[in-house]
Computed example of a mutant assay.
Amino acid sequence: MIIRRILTSPAQPGNPIFAYGLLTIIVLLLIWNIQVLLDAPPSYPYDRCGNLVVALMLLFNHLAFQFRWPAGVAVALRVLALGWTAFGLFYVCYESHMLFPLKSSSP
């Protein structure tokens, strides 16, 4: 029943300056990450998507848990947020290191 409570409990009303201010910061971070991703040269050898994955984690969690939504939308957003958090943690902690291993500087 704890999973049902997490998915369906309404968000606690908070300070709107925090909710909308942080949403603005997250959206600006996401725009900046996309701009950096598009401006990176094709020869860039490191992980391009790590920052984007983290920014989307922040966005989905903030939308799901800081704003009031109708019940169906809230459940869908929370499932998306929790699923993306699991994927993001897997990507940042494991997969990005497998896809883009650190190159040693020794000859």
Rank of each mutant, 00 (worst) to 15 (best):
V75M: 07
A74G: 03
A19H: 15
Y91I: 02
F18H: 12
K103C: 04
E95H: 05
L77E: 11
L38W: 08
R68Y: 04
A55Y: 01
G72L: 13
Y20M: 12
I31C: 10
Q66D: 00
W69H: 10
G88R: 07
G14L: 10
I31W: 11
L37Q: 10
F18C: 11
H97V: 01
R5W: 12
P16W: 14
V27K: 10
V92K: 11
P70Y: 11
W32C: 05
L23Y: 12
P101F: 12
P70R: 12
F67W: 11
R48V: 05
S9Y: 05
A71H: 01
L23M: 15
A64E: 07
V75T: 08
A74F: 02
A55W: 05
T24S: 15
L38N: 03
M98E: 09
A81M: 06
V54G: 00
N15D: 14
L102T: 07
A86T: 09
Y94Q: 08
V73Y: 09
P13Q: 10
P70V: 05
V53I: 12
G21E: 14
Y46A: 13
K103W: 09
L37F: 13
R5S: 03
M1R: 14
L56M: 08
P101K: 10
S9K: 01
I25N: 13
G72P: 01
A71R: 11
A11E: 03
S104H: 14
G88S: 09
L23S: 13
P16M: 10
G72E: 10
P41T: 12
S9A: 09
F100N: 10
A40F: 15
A11Y: 09
D47T: 07
F100V: 02
L38C: 06
S104I: 05
L80R: 06
A55V: 01
R78S: 06
N33F: 03
P10T: 05
P10S: 09
N15S: 14
A86P: 01
